[in-house]
Each structure stands twice: as C-alpha cells, then as structure tokens.
Design a binder for these strands. Structure first.
Length: 190
DNA sequence: CGGCTTTGACCCGCGC
DNA sequence: GCGCGGGTCAAAGCCG
C-alpha cells in the first residue's frame, strides 16, 4: 500500500517558523512542499488516490493524520532528511482527469483565509457548497506550466478554522518568501 | 496595460 | 435522461 509521510514541523507547537522551505524536485518520488509559515492544526491526506473511483470531494474523504503519526512514519522509514516536506511515495501523481497530484488538506485556526505559503496563487472560482454556508474559493498556482491547485474554505462546524486543500506538486521553486512576523522580506534565488 | 478578481455560465460525474 | 452538486471557464471589471 502506498503511504505518505510528513516531516515534522520545525516548531513543535506548529507555530510560525523563520526557516525557508526546502524544495528538492525528484523524479523518483514526489514531494509536496508545505510552507513553514502556516500554523497547521490538522492534516488530512488523500489515501484513495489509487482506488479507481472516489475522487475526493470533501475533507471527510481524506484520511486524517497527526504529527505523531508522521513522526512514527519517519522513524519507520529511517528518514534522514530535515526537509520540511510532505512526501508522496510509490505511484503516479496523475489521478483522474483534472487531478494533478496528491491531495493534502490542512485545518488551521486563522482569522484570515489567505495565508502566504510562499507561492503565488490566482483565484479562478468561488462556490457556495452544500452543508456549508461559507464560500469555497479555488486557486491555481500562477507559475506558468504549474497546475497545482488550492481550495480554501472555512470549517463548516467551526468557522474559526480555515481548511486549505492542496492538490498537485509544484514543478518549480518557491518564487519568494515573505514576511513572517517581524522577519524581513527575503528573495529566494533559484 | 497587464495581471488579478469577480461572477454567471458551463461542464462533468454521479445517483436516482 | 434528468437533476444536483462540485469544479472550471472566461468575459468583464478592477486596480496598481
């Protein structure tokens, strides 16, 4: 069975970090870079990728993992890297039509919905979804040739949480890093 | 003027 | 086949 793991967040309290992301493109495994800047309370990962059916429509269909799970997985796999990645192992990243890669969801407690994760996003849609009076926003990565998508909505049960779902793997480096608390702006030179 | 957001229309899969 | 719900398109408008 395929498995996924997430490197532990550099900050044990999942708070803001000043580290830059590390993105190491690889043809043998697919890495999904997660911003260090987000405060991640919960993570869901789509484990149904290789089942033929069930294109994930909601966060309920994603498997929730914890950072403890993740750390355990790391120990099992003798992970040596300190990169702050989510890795997606063994398998095609091409799912059904329109899907561009692994799907990972985060729930974060935040008053703002647009959290700077280092990438540049272009909004392309907004929908009201059933069972959630909050609107769901759709974003695409602005980088040419990069098909990574992102969905942002507020938790139906607790609107103080924002659920962000990433789909796909960036085929480019992070264009820049930005403010993180009082940390000054830095450019990322690829 | 270029890049972005907005917004209704459109598309598609799925269940009945 | 039809309706519903979710996802995407693309024209128009906005803004720096």
């Amino acid at each position: 069975m395929d498995f996924y793991f997430v490197n532990p967040h550099p900050n044990p309290n999942f708070g803001y970090s000043t580290h830059m992301n590390h993105h190491v493109p690889s043809s043998s495994s697919h890495e999904f870079v997660v911003s260090d800047y987000l405060m991640l309370d919960d993570i869901w990962i789509d484990q149904t990728r290789h089942d033929q059916e069930s294109r994930s429509q909601s966060i309920e269909s994603l498997e929730k993992v914890t950072f403890d799970d993740v750390n355990h997985e790391l120990e099992l796999n003798d992970a040596t890297s300190n990169n702050n990645n989510i890795k997606y192992k063994n398998g095609s990243i091409k799912g059904k039509k329109g899907e561009v890669g692994p799907k990972i969801a985060f729930r974060t407690r935040s008053e703002i919905e647009i959290m700077d994760d280092g990438y540049k996003w272009r909004k392309y849609g907004k929908k009201s979804v059933k069972n959630n009076h909050n609107l769901r926003n759709y974003y695409k990565c602005s980088s040419v040739g990069c098909n990574v998508k992102k969905r942002v909505e507020r938790d139906r049960d607790d609107s103080s949480y924002v659920i962000t779902t990433y789909e796909g793997v960036h085929n480019h480096d992070i264009p820049f890093t930005s403010y993180c608390g009082q940390i000054s702006f830095q450019h990322y030179d690829a």
